[in-house]
Design a protein around this nucleic acid. Structure first.
Lengths: 241, 241
DNA sequence: TAGTGGTCTAGACCACGAC
DNA sequence: TCGTGGTCTAGACCACTAT
């Protein structure tokens, strides 16, 4: 029974991983759901429990699944406390991390700028949804954000008054799109007059610019986000090891 | 022979991990060395090969060890291509990543500023080594850096002309100190006149400030580093998943 | 060809959570 | 009490590297 993988095939645990990932992509298992036990999955796929465990290990490391000893393995939920800060790295210089709130400036459809179309892998003329908002940390305006989405994929995007604070949770509930990974390019830039007004600083003041491309579970570029942040009493935290 | 860990003890593989880490800390195994095979270590510690493997897995994930199939497991070397960029996240907006070069401005001993003493867990009056340098990317001055070290731990720090570009490699070779982890706090700030002169920008121009605390394998804060970077044609890259 | 890490299996007991 | 994930073992074959 050992060493089933014929030559040229990928390791069994990676094949199992793909099957599990597929069930997440297809929405077969929803955020918060408990997935079948390791032994059940092992029986289903005709592999050993250790192989299933190794597949799940990789997905837990990517924050796609969560293990709870004695209880089960669950699909990660973007509302969970542990994951709320997964993609939000700004925190006060002193005092604890807090969740930002949002004030929508505008939301509507427009044609993608060249840079955005490239980032989202769209044609030059593609229509996008464009959301602008100010985010407040501890009640103070801290950053202005522009978010761009492929209008074809996010059909029926809500109006400003119905746009929730946690967008990734919205993508998941409304369109079954899960953000799995992001790349951020960070620079220091000077505030333009609009930003200065929104953030209550002087034009030309240094702002932290975070340009993010978020990808779904199939690695497709899904969201383009440009944030400009006043970092007088905040910082972007990063751990490297 | 199973389930050896008595109640209250940590899992075997974590205990093995600590023994392996200790041999790195003590300099028993040097960067670049091949460590004993999994089976040899299993025999030495009287555990199964799978348990040793799990311990090594955690250290490979932390970039402390490297596996080479068919060859062996090696102690990570801060000169290896793969690790050169582990802690250096700045890259050109277009074009490939390149290694920065350095031009030393000054190196000497001084008394620690309060913030630095706190960061390095030193007494207020402690003496530190203070190194200032400009770093060039593709030959262009891109950032100014101030590096602070506990003078008591880094006795015999070389003069400017003998200070190499790769400091973490120096710490390792000269004092057997390995940097295992860093925390970075990133802000946007305005260039002061000195920085503007060094970087060829105007005073007040926005700079990316990266404040880093680097820890050794025993988690002791070891190096304080403040970098201020001109990000007109560069960015700080970060992947989140 | 010998030795190393990489994958896989089967089965065991433990710690924890839910009931 | 039962089912879950967490740990551990022993042994097997494969893929790769060095010689």
């Amino acid at each position: 029974m050992n060493q089933v993988p014929a030559i040229g095939l990928r390791p069994l645990y990676l094949q199992v991983r793909e099957r599990l990932l597929r069930r997440l992509i297809d929405g077969d298992w929803q955020p918060g759901d408990m997935i079948p036990s390791e032994n059940l999955l092992a029986a289903e796929y005709q592999v050993s429990q250790g192989t299933v465990r190794k597949a799940i290990d990789t997905m837990v490391r990517e924050n796609l699944l969560r293990r709870r000893q004695g209880s089960g393995t669950y699909v990660a939920n973007s509302n969970d406390d542990r994951f709320v800060f997964q993609f939000f790295r700004l925190q006060p210089d002193d005092g604890p991390r807090t969740l930002p709130s949002s004030r929508i400036i505008s939301v509507g459809r427009t044609q993608a700028a060249a840079a955005v179309a490239t980032a989202l892998d769209l044609s030059a003329a593609a229509e996008i949804i464009r959301l602008r908002r100010v985010r407040l940390i501890d009640g103070v305006a801290a950053l202005v954000e522009t978010i761009c989405l492929d209008a074809a994929r996010f059909d029926g995007f809500p109006a400003a008054r119905d746009t929730p604070n946690n967008l990734y949770n919205l993508y998941s509930r409304r369109w079954n799109i899960t953000i799995g990974r992001t790349e951020e390019r960070i620079k220091a830039v000077a505030a333009d007059p609009d930003e200065a007004r929104a953030l209550g600083c002087t034009p030309g003041a240094p702002l932290l610019q975070v340009e993010r491309i978020a990808r779904d579970l199939e690695e497709r570029p899904t969201e383009y986000r440009l944030s400009r942040c006043l970092t007088e009493r905040l910082h972007y935290m990063n751990q490297l090891s």
